[in-house]
Design a protein around this nucleic acid. Sequence first.
DNA 1: ATCAAAATAATAGTATTACTATCGTTAAAT
DNA 2: ATTTAACGATAGTAATACTATTATTTTGAT
Lengths: 224, 224
Amino acid sequence: MDALIRNMEVSINPGLYLKDPQSTRLGKRMVSYGIAMISEMGVEKFNFRKLGEEIGSNESSVYRYFENKNKFLIYLCSWYWGWLELRLVQETHAISDPSSRLEHAIDTLTQPVVPDSSYEHIDEVALHQIVVNEYSKPFLTREVDQQNRDGYFEIYKRLVHRLADMIRAVNPGYPYAVSLSSSVIEGSLHQFFLEQHFPSLTELEGVRNHTRFFIHLVTNTIRK
Amino acid sequence: MDALIRNMEVSINPGLYLKDPQSTRLGKRMVSYGIAMISEMGVEKFNFRKLGEEIGSNESSVYRYFENKNKFLIYLCSWYWGWLELRLVQETHAISDPSSRLEHAIDTLTQPVVPDSSYEHIDEVALHQIVVNEYSKPFLTREVDQQNRDGYFEIYKRLVHRLADMIRAVNPGYPYAVSLSSSVIEGSLHQFFLEQHFPSLTELEGVRNHTRFFIHLVTNTIRK
DNA sequence: ATCAAAATAATAGTATTACTATCGTTAAAT
DNA sequence: ATTTAACGATAGTAATACTATTATTTTGAT
């Protein structure tokens, strides 16, 4: 793997924070404890006062880093999508055969998340838990269109387009590459959600089943 | 169509309301105006005080019908899913060929909603709008597991299983019928959402494209 | 080491929300 | 006509999502 790709970092739209939390120890603690708390109690019960207390600081300090709770959530989700995009690029860039590359891509995107030691203060497993359980909340506010204009969802959109490109590489004639891509990425989260809360609505309980289901679905759908 | 099927009604878990809104004029107004208001302003800006005022009544009266806003939203969504289930049954019960039945089912489930005059005080188009934009909010609260135990999502689950049965009827050997079914039902909403807010993430702008996309996807996926 | 500037902590306060409780009035049922 | 149920109006509460202000600590330049 070349150095360029090995050294890539997750970069997040600065509009999502007032002061970059990555730039200080305190900021990193906010992110790190924020992930832990939200994955445990959910966003509605989470608030900046509790986070401040938890990190031995207080509410007003958190507000100096993040404008509000919703942006904090979008920040965390962006981090997740950015991290996933990085992994996607790392896992697929060396594969030249389009079909094989697509399979690896889907594998990366739909597998249950395992701990990644590259980022000390971020627990990717808890973060995945958040995205599965709260992922659509930042989207499903009335401000979504403004936030989209502000570029807060760029990483997510880029990820969808990356997968769509790989789909097109296998079958350029398939007319719904982007819809299929967004269906897979969103659908993967949804199936994890069902597995946890509505097990009767999914068969994907095992570790490899998610990947099998989606690879089979995509492969058959775009088959010429 | 036989009388039994023509006369079916949407029935909703009584745990979702304190007093059946269908039983009084005032209750129907709550539902009817509630749909209009939420589809316009979104759930977060909507509240029972505003609804009370809008129907020329007041907050406390609404609270006599519905315990809280979240249950009200689940009530409305249940109505939508129940209505869709009815339409699904009506549209497919007479079709004996499994493949053709499945196609009609997907068509019914993924088509843009058009007005249905059978229910005077309910605007199905606005309701679809709500489900598309807020659908996961009732799910994505921490109480989802308790609410599931209370049976609040039975209609939705039944709908998923109905479609899964039709998938199995076409190919009994396909092992992920339920996951595929839930993916289609959820995915259809998601694609409508993308069309409205993230058009770059979907190709399904036309009227027939949703149906084409999902029928093609399901047919190819379960093809032997 | 000193001192100014920046960052953080502590506290108080505001507007809104999601309810609950109470009570008087109106409408419906017998 | 009278009892009962439904409704309307008002007040109140606890929590939340912030904002504003000021005090204290940390940092960084000299």
